[in-house]
């Protein structure tokens, strides 16, 4: 019986670099979100743009924090 070994979907060695990359991209998107919020007036704001930036930032920060946890040895 040739059993197939199961490994992680992402190679374990990539976790630290993935964590750094995704968290920094996420933080940049967060920054752009808040810059947009601060610089635009209430009337000129577009809700679609706000939601898109927020969603992208949260995806990057969410996965980024997961990889931070995995890279630091907290295997969830």
């Amino acid at each position: 019986m040739a059993a197939k070994a199961i490994s992680s979907p992402v190679p374990v060695e990539w976790y630290p670099s993935l964590a750094a990359l995704m968290v920094s991209v996420g933080l940049m998107l967060t920054a752009s979100f808040f810059i947009y919020e601060a610089t635009s007036s209430r009337r000129s704001r577009s809700l679609a743009k706000e939601i898109t930036t927020a969603a992208m930032a949260s995806v990057f920060l969410g996965f980024g924090s997961l990889f931070v946890l995995l890279a630091s040895g907290v295997y969830v």
Partner: peptide, 15 residues
């Protein structure tokens, strides 16, 4: 997805 939704919740609160 849990982590993503937690961050998203924060952004939605800000908006």
């Amino acid at each position: 997805l849990m982590l993503v939704s937690a961050v998203l919740l924060f952004f939605v609160a800000c908006i």
